[in-house]
C-alpha cells in the first residue's frame, strides 16, 4: 500500500489562497452593502440624501432620524413614531412564540411517546397545515376571530400565529423526540412519574437545541409577518404594518433617513435572536440526522 504523502493531498498555493479570500471578502462586502446603505443614510440629514450621494458617509452625523422614527414620525394619521407598534409586536410575538413552542413540544411528545391509533394521520394533517398559504385562510380566519370577539386585538393575532405555527413546531419536536429513547419514558413510568412529570423532568431538559430552532423559526416568521398583521391587527397593528405605513405614505416629503432608521428598528429583534441563539440553530436542525 502506498503511503499517504503531502503530494496526494489537494495543495493550495499562496496565490490560490489569496484569490479565494479575495472572492470571499468581495461577496461579504456585497452582502453587507444594503446594511451599510441603511446604516449611513439613517445617520445623515435628509438634505444630504436628496443631494444625491447615497453611498457617502454622513458629513453631519445625526441621530434625529432614529428619534423621529422611534417616537415622532407620522404613521398613518398619528405622529406616534414606531414605538407603540414595536410594543404591539413584542406583546404579540412573545406569547405566540412561547405558546406555539410549548404546544409543539407537547404534540411531539404525545405523537412519539404516547402513540395512539391514527397518530400518523394526525401528524400528517398537522404537517399539511405547513403548506397552506396564508391568503387562503384570511376570510375563514376573519369569521372565526369575529365570532370569538378577538378581531382587531393582539390576542387575536396571537391566536392566529399560534394556530399557524403549531404545524411547524410539532414537526420539529416530533422528529427530535422520535430519536429519544422510549426506554427512558418507560423507566420514568415505572418510577411513578405521570404524563406531565415525564415531559417536564425527562424530555424538556434535553430539548434545548430543538427549542432554539422552534423559537428562532417562530420568532422570525411572526415578527416579519405582514399579511395577518394588516388583516387582523385592527387598532393594535404590529411593527411591519407600521413600517409600511411609514414608508409608503403618499403625502409630504419622503424622509428617507427616517425610513432607513425605521427599517433597521424593525429588523433589530430578529437579528438579536439570531446572534444570541444562532449557533444552536444549525446544531438543532442537524440533531437526530447523524447517529451519535
Amino acid at each position: 500500500m502506498a503511503a499517504v504523502t503531502q503530494d496526494t493531498a489537494v495543495s493550495t498555493g499562496r496565490i490560490t489562497r489569496a484569490f479565494i479570500y479575495l472572492v470571499l471578502i468581495l461577496f461579504a462586502l456585497f452582502y453587507l452593502l444594503p446594511l451599510y446603505v441603511m446604516g449611513v443614510n439613517s445617520l445623515k440629514p435628509l438634505a444630504e440624501i436628496t443631494g444625491g450621494n447615497m453611498m457617502a458617509l454622513p458629513s453631519t452625523w445625526t441621530l434625529d432620524p432614529w428619534r423621529s422614527a422611534w417616537s415622532t414620525a407620522q404613521i398613518g394619521v398619528e405622529p406616534t413614531g414606531l414605538k407603540p407598534y414595536f410594543l404591539n409586536s413584542i406583546l404579540m410575538v412573545v406569547p405566540a412564540v412561547a405558546i406555539s413552542t410549548i404546544v409543539g413540544a407537547l404534540n411531539g411528545y404525545v405523537l412519539t411517546k404516547w402513540r395512539f391509533r391514527g397518530d400518523t394521520w394526525v401528524f400528517g394533517l398537522m404537517l399539511f397545515s405547513c403548506f397552506i398559504p396564508f391568503q387562503i385562510v384570511l376570510i375563514p380566519m376573519a369569521v372565526v376571530l369575529g365570532k370569538l370577539g378577538l378581531a382587531g386585538s393582539v390576542s387575536g393575532l396571537i391566536l392566529v400565529h399560534v394556530v399557524y405555527g403549531i404545524g411547524f413546531t410539532t414537526l420539529y419536536f416530533r422528529n427530535y423526540y422520535a430519536s429519544f429513547p422510549t426506554e427512558l419514558v418507560r423507566a420514568a413510568m415505572i418510577d411513578g412519574a405521570g404524563f406531565f412529570r415525564i415531559f417536564w423532568r425527562i424530555l424538556l431538559p434535553v430539548s434545548g437545541p430543538i427549542a432554539v430552532v422552534s423559537v428562532i423559526w417562530q420568532f422570525t416568521n411572526i415578527w416579519n409577518d405582514f399579511l395577518f398583521g394588516v388583516s387582523f391587527g385592527g387598532t393594535s397593528q404590529p411593527m411591519t404594518v407600521a413600517l409600511n405605513n411609514l414608508v409608503q405614505s403618499s403625502t409630504g416629503v419622503k424622509e428617507y433617513n427616517v425610513h432607513f432608521a425605521g427599517a433597521i428598528l424593525a429588523a433589530l429583534p430578529t437579528l438579536f435572536v439570531y446572534i444570541v441563539a444562532g449557533r444552536y440553530f444549525v446544531r438543532g436542525l442537524m440533531a437526530g440526522s447523524v447517529k451519535g
Binding site: L184, R186, D191
Partner: peptide, 26 residues
C-alpha cells in the same frame, strides 16, 4: 416493581444520585 433496562435508561440530565432517587421522589 422495579426494572433494569437493556440500555440502562438512565436520565441523562440528572446526576447518578438524582437518577437513583427519582422513583422515591415521585
Amino acid at each position: 416493581i422495579a426494572m433494569v433496562f437493556q440500555s440502562y435508561a438512565l436520565y441523562p440530565n440528572m446526576t447518578v444520585g438524582q437518577n437513583m432517587t427519582f422513583g422515591l421522589e415521585m
